[in-house]
Amino acid sequence: MVRSGFVTPELDTRWFDPARLNVLIGILLFTAFLVVNIFRARAKGTLYVRPIAGLKALDEAIGRATEMGRPVLYVPGLSDMSEVGTFAAITICARLAYRVAEMGCDIDVPCYDPVVMTVLDGAVREAYSKAGKPDAFRPGCVHYVSAQQMAYVAAVNGFMLRELPAANIYMGSFYAESLLLAETGARTGAIQIAGTDKVTQLPFFVCACDYTLLGEELFAASAYLGREPIQLATVIAQDWAKALAAAAIVGALVLSALGHPALQTWLKVA
């Protein structure tokens, strides 16, 4: 449609786009993997997930903070609820808050996004209740700072230098601020554990933190900490999906080398 020189795209009102059939099949397959593994996890009681080094250090970090009488700083990343990393950050924060409540130290969670703050506030409050210490929850420990990236960094860096948290935990989606935060944290001598799904920011955390959860380890972490069947099942389902993806790549390469590029073409999304 052309009006006054501007092109307005036509609204696609179809319920189903046949060009994206492969995406639908992918989602259905992953859902099937998930359901099968949930049943497996319920039948067995648990499923094996390999240990992740950074997670073992979380208890050490909380213990250190308790001994030193200083808070644990939890930075949940700079994204909103549209990022999968934010969901993982919320789950890990809830587990961490439970351990913090059990051990009786303090936690501080500065937030970038107001909606994430609201969800985190509920998660931390609930963790304190689950730990049997609802009165120990300090209102305001989960607080909004700024939705402007560098203003947020300035405030959190200032907090690190003034309050000297014993442990800095960075989990979620991070961008250019990752090195600024982790470098300042390293200067204060705090034990630092990071995890992000943003591959471009991982090198900075690897350099400046004591432990780093690489990419998908962030998602596995929440399942590993909780040991709940449904969450463990999601990790195993992802492994099955990865195995299928690897097989699809090798299969497509071999078939196209033999003159049958059908699988390779099918993998392309319009």
């Binding site: 994206r20 492969n22 995406v23 992918g26 989602i27 992953f30 909103d80 609820m81 549209s82 990022e83 999968v84 909606v115 969800v119 993806a245 699809a248 790549i249 497509a252 390469l253 196209s256 080398a257 590029p261 699988l263 390779q264 993998l267 392309k268 999304v269």
Partner: peptide, 28 residues
């Protein structure tokens, strides 16, 4: 809010993060 974002994000991720990479990796 969370439900809407999850619904929007899952097909988007499957398309942009998984299938796009699979197609690139499977190039001759």
């Amino acid at each position: 809010y969370v439900g809407i974002y999850s619904g929007v994000a899952i097909p988007g991720y499957m398309q942009a993060q998984i299938f796009a990479q699979l197609a690139d990796a499977a190039k001759p």
